[in-house]
Design a protein around this nucleic acid. Structure first.
Length: 588
RNA sequence: GGCCCUGUAGUUCAACGGAUAGAAUGGAAGUUUCCUAAACUUUAGAUAGCAGUUCGAUUCUGCUCGGGGCUACCA
């Protein structure tokens, strides 16, 4: 049992003994550091029942608790706040549980299966900073839910078909002179992305020419020859034209090779990859079923809609008048097939908040179709990454490319490490590995420490910091601990009786809160809570490190306890940062 | 127009309705004969505005003013 729940239950029990049943729920929170105590109970909610002043109520509760439980060391009351210190023996006992746990922070199995869909890129452009947030968040949430004891399936739905791909293909045919990633020496996703940009250049010129010739802007946008060609190409693709399909396959394979490299650089992975070209017809059967049930209706032109006006929303298109499906249709179909295939307990979509409306509608329609699992769909809606001047815009060339950013971070980590010059005796390969670890640690932590729902800001002109509340700070803390443990040699068993000082109690308290923090982060789908936890722990350790000599301690039993303590801290840092996909080095 | 999100130190981020709103960074001032100074210590600096609910509001409600998003027979 965690110290919090122990105290909460003890206090509730004692309070009902004093003032009767039916009291408001009590809460025990860590005491603010400027006051003495480990946990604080706010007694204001008890006043109605106690008929005493706040101070007197706190005092009565504290005294009763102390009389009943030997674990209570001391208490003090400040206004309506009862600050309780648990005995040092109690904390030593808690630490011994943490010390003996194989994987502290890992929660027991829930038996639930959760699919997390994330990344889901289009195959016409390389990944950028927005995708990085998506990828890191999706991976971290997957790790987080696994730490919460769930069986997690990481899924990626690749948008590999559609007019945007045809645009890249067309531009490649017209302008690339048969260039391949090998011949051009460019990463495949970038090569295809360049083609897409070229297409748009051509298209824009054509539109401008048409307008100059007296065509209205709206018509010009529709009549540009390159666009018509792209639309014809899409039609050919849908009809299975061998030449078109072959080109499509070739260019997509370049893109996949490029994406795989970026994914691997980021250290993220998937268990299941879906391709839209294989799923885009799903959902049509559901539409027919919905029509029969009267959930949907058909307009005169043959298009099919769902009327959501009674839910405060609009009418939503599900099949075009030509019978082809739209995004929503596919999503209905893929959701249904996934729940059927994997008997999921939850399906999480990591998708930007500009699609809030889409997922609201998706859930609603699935509910209307009578699927009981429609409530098990969760849209993990995250905010945009903005630049100081606002949104990234490809037209203005302000898009922050994922590969460029990763490279830039690597160079900076390398430079900083070399300036500090602490890596003597490390092989070049080990150093390279370390620079990757540090640069990715900085990038991942920078992104993941922010509440996913919030819009966050990234300034490309200022590099991501390596000092302060950062990934490298936590990595450094870990390296320091490992350095001490290396010097200490083999670890003796934890002594039965440990004497712990105030700072150590504080550290044990933070360690003890890890499982609860992971559970809380899991249920709120927020890796940011785990990031903040790791930072708090690292900061607390650094203060301890500064004022408490460990290896110089002469008392063997205290020395052993301290080594166990810092070893447990290192493990907790690895556990929490591991959830974020951040590795911690042995030295740096 | 309608719907949704958002507003906290100069800047980037925290804070289940609880105490004197925390960190980091930048500014100022310190700490290396001592387990890694990517660290530690001290210092100045913020809840957009107005009401309401409450013993207590950054948090909940309403209005005003800012910022963003959605409102496609695109995905």
């Amino acid at each position: 049992m965690t110290p919090e729940t122990f105290l909460k239950e003890a206090a509730s029990k004692v309070a009902s003994k004093l003032w009767g049943e039916g009291l408001p729920c009590l809460d025990a929170t860590p005491t603010r550091k400027e006051f003495e105590g480990d946990f604080t109970i706010v007694v204001f909610p008890l006043l109605k029942a106690s008929h005493l002043a706040p101070e007197a109520t706190g005092k009565a509760l504290g005294e009763a608790l102390q009389a009943e439980y030997s674990e209570i060391g001391s208490f003090n009351v400040v206004k309506g706040f009862l600050n309780i210190s648990l005995s040092s023996k109690y904390w030593a006992g808690i630490f011994s549980q943490i010390d003996s746990a194989k994987d502290w922070g890992q929660l027991p199995p829930t038996g639930k299966t959760i699919m997390v869909e994330y990344s889901s890129p289009n195959t016409n452009k390389p990944l950028h900073l927005g995708h990085i947030r998506n990828n890191l968040l999706g991976y971290a949430v997957s790790q987080l839910l696994a730490a919460c004891g769930n069986n997690v399936i990481k899924a990626n739905l690749v948008n590999d078909r559609g007019i945007h791909i045809c645009k890249s293909m067309l531009a490649w045919l017209k302008t690339a002179n048969g260039a391949t990633p090998e011949s051009a020496g460019i990463k495949g996703d970038h090569l295809v992305g360049d083609c897409y940009v070229k297409f748009n250049d051509i298209y824009k010129e054509e539109v401008a020419a048409l307008i100059a010739a007296g065509v209205s802007e709206d018509d010009a946008k529709k009549q540009a020859p390159s666009l018509i060609e792209a639309q014809e190409m899409l039609l050919k693709w849908e009809q299975g034209d061998p030449e078109t399909v072959a080109l499509w396959k070739k260019m997509n394979s370049w893109v996949y090779a490029g994406f795989d490299k970026t994914y691997s650089d980021l250290g993220i992975s998937f268990d299941k990859i879906y391709y839209e070209s294989q799923t885009y017809l799903l959902g049509k059967a559901l539409v027919s079923a919905g029509l029969e049930k009267g959930v949907f209706f058909r307009k005169e032109d043959g298009s099919v809609w769902c009327d959501l006006t009674s839910d405060g929303l609009d009418q939503k298109l599900l099949l075009r008048s030509d019978g082809t499906s739209v995004y929503m249709t596919q999503d209905l179909g893929t959701a249904e097939s996934r729940f059927r295939e994997y008997s999921l307990d939850e399906l999480i979509y990591v998708v930007g908040d500009e699609q809030n409306y889409h997922f609201q509608v998706l859930k609603l329609i699935l509910g209307k179709l009578g699927f009981s699992w429609s409530d098990a769909i969760y849209h993990l809606s995250y905010g945009m990454v903005e630049l100081p001047e606002g949104k990234m815009k490809s037209r203005e060339g302000t898009v922050v490319d994922a590969d460029d950013l990763i490279t830039k971070m690597y160079e900076e980590a390398k430079e900083t490490s070399q300036e500090l010059g602490k890596l003597e005796g490390m092989s070049a390969a080990e150093q390279d590995e370390l620079y990757k670890m540090i640069s990715l640690g900085a990038l991942k932590y920078f992104i993941l420490k922010v509440d996913p729902r919030k819009t966050m800001l990234f300034n490309p002109k200022e590099s991501i910091d390596f000092n302060g509340n950062t990934g490298p700070f936590i990595q450094y803390t870990h390296a320091r601990i490992m350095s001490i443990l290396r010097k200490a040699g083999a670890l003796s068993p934890l002594p039965e009786e440990c004497v712990v000082n105030a700072k150590e109690i504080r550290l044990i308290q933070i360690l003890a809160s890890l499982p609860g923090k992971i559970g809380e982060a899991g249920s709120s789908h927020s890796p940011a809570l785990v990031a903040n936890y790791a930072y708090d722990l690292a900061k607390e350790f650094n203060q301890y490190y500064h004022e408490t000599p460990i290896l110089k301690e002469e008392n063997a039993s205290i020395l052993t306890f301290r080594l166990h303590l810092i070893s447990a801290i290192a493990a907790a840092l690895r556990k929490s940062m591991g959830i974020l996909g951040i590795k911690l080095p042995e030295r740096m």
